[in-house]
Each structure stands twice: as C-alpha cells, then as structure tokens.
Amino acid sequence: MLEIKNLHAGIDGKDILKGINLTINKGEVHAIMGPNGSGKSTLAKVLAGHPQYQVTAGEVLYKGKNLLELAPHERALEGVFMAFQYPIEVPGVSNAQFLRLAYNEKQKHLGKDELDPLEFKDLLKERAKVVEMDASFMTRSVNEGFSGGEKKRNEILQMAVLEPQLGVLDETDSGLDIDALRVVAGGVNQLRTPENAIIVVTHYQRLLNYIVPDFVHVLANGRIAREGGKELALELEEKGYDWIRAEQNGSGVSAIAK
C-alpha cells in the first residue's frame, strides 16, 4: 500500500529525514517510535503534505502512485488521513458542517451519493459511538474549546467518518489521561480492517498496549535505527532511547574509521 524509499525531507532548509525506507501493506499496523527531534512527526506531516516541509530526495508510492505529487486534499480523497498531534480549532464552523462537507467531498470523489444534513446526522450519530462522543459536540465549532482529550477523540471521529485506507496517527496519545487514551485507542482498533493500514507515531510505548502494532520502527536522527515486532516497544520502554542513539553513533564512528 505504501512504499517509502530513501526519503529525505526538511523544513526551512534544515534536513530532518535523512533516508527513510519503509514498506507498509494493507491490514498492518506500524508504530513509528523515537526520541524527540528524531523526525517521526515530520514523517507524518510529509505524508499528509504539509506545505512547510520540503522533500529533497526519495519517493513515496501510495497504491502504486506517486503520493508526493498530490495536493493535501487529493491525498485525503485517495484515502490518506492524518490525525493531528495538535488538532486545529476552526471557529464558527460546526463539527457537523465540517464533517459533512469532508464526507461529501469524498463521496463525490468516489462517484457515490452525497448525504443531506438529516441523512448525515444519522451516520454521524452511529460513528460517534466509536469514540463515545455525544451529540453536543456536533453542533459546536470544530475543536473550539475542546479539552485535549476531546480534540483527540474528534480526530478519531473524523477518521471513523472518512474511513481512510491509510491512517497516520501523529502522537495521538500525547496529553491524554488513561481513560481518554483507552477510548481513543479503542476507537482506532474498531477502525482496523484487513483492507486498511495504520501508522502510529508515538514517543511512548503506552499507546501500543492498546493499539498493538505488527511492526515497530525506531527513528533516530532522521533514519530508521532499529526495526522489530511489538516486543521492541517494550524493550524501549525498559531501556529508553539512549542506547539506540549510542548504537547509531557508534556504528557511524566505526563506519568512518573503516
């Protein structure tokens, strides 16, 4: 589904990703872990098409097509969804309006029928159960005045409505207490299917107790430093990230020495 080859990217002329290689098949959940500044959020933003990040080398193939050529809204229409680490507040636009517009754009793109406000209300009510959100959130402005946990739940609600093929969760666990984490993770698990893939970007192993990954990739200094199964996350929880960085530096030194 997704093939990332030798991806280099940065912001304001500063290199952050220095050659990422990653292959993700449908039905898989991949965790991207790493210390602060390792580039994991940058990877999520580059996949979503954030205009401030520049790709300087490499390629990203999504369903065999060049993802990097697509504008952010085209990526979304093709089934890519990023849950934001810091969801944006959109004053004056109600959650229901926003979600219906997004949903109908997608329906249009797929050549399917658009839903009128009443039909959409029913769909929204159904999907809101996934993250245990009550109806009052639908008439409120998007994320405005929402608590941290409510914002993250709202992200997963959007994912539930838009049913992406590739979901990228950018530090969805940050700022969540344990109850909210359980709800959000439970929501994500309900959205897992054999047909879609999910990338979970996280600093901590905690979220991965709830969303169990098939693969764990550890980023350090813009490269994948370690890869493994879910047990790698537990190892990181125990040992921290320093040993990975030390290992990476060590191998770097020995490479130069050779």
């Binding site: 098409g49 952010p72 809204h73 934001f84 959109v90 636009v93 754009e105």
Partner: peptide, 24 residues
Amino acid sequence: FYLTTRGIEPSVGRNLLTYGFAEE
C-alpha cells in the same frame, strides 16, 4: 491545511474559514 487534509479543496476551505469568521 487542516481542512485540506480532510479532502476539502483549498478554495472551498478558504470560503469555509471565511464563513466561520463571520459566524461569530
């Protein structure tokens, strides 16, 4: 950007944000 990542075209997104601005 947030709106566009949900599949909303930039021109529509601009209008939506403008409308939201007036809505207050």
